[in-house]
Design a protein around this nucleic acid. Structure first.
Length: 472
RNA sequence: GGCCCCGUGGUGUAACGGUUAGCACGCCAGGUUUUCAACCUGGAAGCGCGGGUUCGACUCCCGCCGGGGCUACCA
């Protein structure tokens, strides 16, 4: 828990109606960065007043996603439902003061009223005689409610275009715009950083603050994220939730770096920014105004950069979880795994891509027929015969991955002269080996791959390939 | 429909009343290379449109067009 070095208090307030989306994750990140940058505090509040859609599973999922992303909070999670008493008290206060009233008008009544008064005219009701009905807040007829937004500047909303909006249902349970304002007030939130979709709601919340007699926080509305088709980001756009990104093999730090850049830039040409950099350089007022499109291609590239920069032991730990999922926990040759990670680190862009590249170390190769036809041509048998002879000469004191005597370097020393000796291009010599031992044309470096597989297994697979060759 | 927001290459961003409009991803070509990736070099690609204001506008103003949000007794 950080000691408070500033008065800044922000909150992240997701509604648990599903997984945490990349857009929500970015909002969380911006709040977190703002808090950590200034030494302020971040409160996590769960907006669960929609009992139909808010489930404990969803709450757990969001908390997991935040933790996995490395975003911690100083207070909470606080359930909005758990604050029902505070909400009722505030509601009573407004009913007492006359700032709000009970109105029995139905949706149809409101529609009829508007038909009569004009579409740009907000509904104005009157207290029901019997004191039943939903609770509405009185909205002034004149003037503007002004949102002084950190990102948008001053935005004016004409009061007359807003309905006397419902702040509590007939049964007394409160609605979103009311609960949010009461909670932000009670929690002493000083700055609200949230999605643009709430900009139009802000006047309502401001009106609640005014009725309550409390100073409102400052607002910073960040632009929404869109999918590649320009539409609002949704589950249809592939890996759109944090959970899916995690399953696809992305690293938390890469995601933090990438989504921070969606709508914000450090001001210079830096692209790769550590979380430390982000914390020191991020300011909500520097967030741009236009919506951004989530582009997985760039995330992939960035993730690859982070994967290559990882310390090897950390890399192995991250990869292991993915490999275990692929092999359903079947024990693997540990030294092959360790060496496999080492030789594959330069190649994969996501954790998910690692297994296909090192799979040949643990299982017989699955022959890709296209690769076979492309590589196993006329010279192949002659080449493989030479390769066998050359590898046979390499003395290995034991048979294991990168074993003493049969190291990448030793293998390279043995194979490297072959192209010249056979008067063939390097590809003509090395590709058949690759296909013989891995089944495909794509693998880690050939010398490393051979060393990782070990002498005996390599020779055995080459022999199998030669047999297949003779039967072609 | 009403209220509100946004509009720099395919994507994310930078600059700004006066620059050859920069950087990154992606794309294309070439190089390197044992494949892929990485790496190196080069290239195509942008200020939504129309009016103003100004000596000068991507930048300021207006209109339009396009995209988005809100408009529930949802959040």
């Amino acid at each position: 828990m950080s000691t408070s070095e500033s008065d800044l208090r922000v909150r992240f307030a997701p509604s648990p109606t599903g997984a945490l989306h990349i857009g929500g994750a970015r909002t969380a990140l911006y709040n977190w960065l703002a808090a950590r940058h200034s030494g302020g505090e971040l409160v996590l509040r769960i907006e669960d007043t929609d009992l139909e859609r808010s489930t404990p599973e969803n709450v757990g999922q969001i908390l997991d996603a935040l933790r996995w992303l490395g975003l911690d909070w100083d207070e909470g999670p606080i359930s909005q439902v758990g604050r029902a008493e505070a909400h009722s008290a505030a509601l009573e206060q407004l009913l007492e003061s006359g700032a709000a009233y009970r109105d029995s008008a139905t949706a149809d009544d409101v529609k009829a009223w508007k038909a009569e008064h004009g579409v740009d005219r907000g509904y104005r009701g009157s207290p029901s005689a019997d004191g039943v009905g939903a609770v509405r807040l009185r909205v002034p007829d004149d003037g503007d409610t002004v949102v002084d937004d950190l990102i948008r500047g001053e935005v004016r909303f004409p009061n007359r275009s807003y309905d006397d909006f419902v702040i509590a249902r007939g049964d007394g349970s409160v609605l979103y715009n009311f609960a949010v304002a009461v909670d932000d007030a009670d929690m002493g939130i000083t700055e609200v950083i949230r999605g643009d979709d709430h900009l139009s709601n802000t006047p309502k919340q401001l009106l609640v603050f005014e009725a309550l007699g409390t100073d409102p926080p400052r607002y910073a509305h960040v632009p929404l994220l869109h999918g590649p088709d320009g539409k609002k980001l949704s589950k249809r756009h592939g890996a759109a939730s944090v959970q899916e990104l995690r399953d696809a093999g992305y690293l938390p730090e890469a995601i933090r770096n990438y989504i921070a850049l969606l709508g914000w830039g450090p001001g210079d040409d830096e692209t790769l920014l550590s979380t430390e950099d982000l914390v020191s350089r991020f300011r909500p007022e520097d967030v741009g105004k236009s919506s951004a499109v989530f582009d997985e291609k760039k995330l992939r590239w960035m993730n690859g950069r982070y994967m290559r920069d990882m310390p090897l032991d950390e890399y192995r730990t991250a990869v292991r979880a993915f490999v275990e999922a692929e092999t359903s926990g079947r024990p693997l040759n540990e030294s092959r795994f360790e060496f496999g990670c080492e030789i594959v680190q330069e190649k994969a862009q996501t954790l998910q891509e690692v297994w296909p590249l090192i799979r040949f170390l643990f299982e017989p190769p699955v022959q890709d027929e296209k690769a076979w036809r492309k590589v196993m041509k006329a010279d192949a048998d002659r080449v493989l015969t030479e390769v066998e002879a050359a590898l046979f000469e390499v003395a290995a004191s034991e048979d294991g991955p990168n074993a003493d005597g049969f190291t990448s370097v030793a293998v390279e020393t043995a194979l490297e002269p072959l192209p010249e000796k056979l008067e063939l291009g390097a590809g003509k010599v090395f590709q058949p080996i690759r296909v013989a031992i891995t089944g495909t044309t794509i693998s880690p470096g050939i010398f490393e791959s051979v060393a990782a597989l070990g002498r005996e297994e390599t020779l055995a697979r080459i022999e199998i390939a030669r047999l297949k060759l003779s039967s072609d």
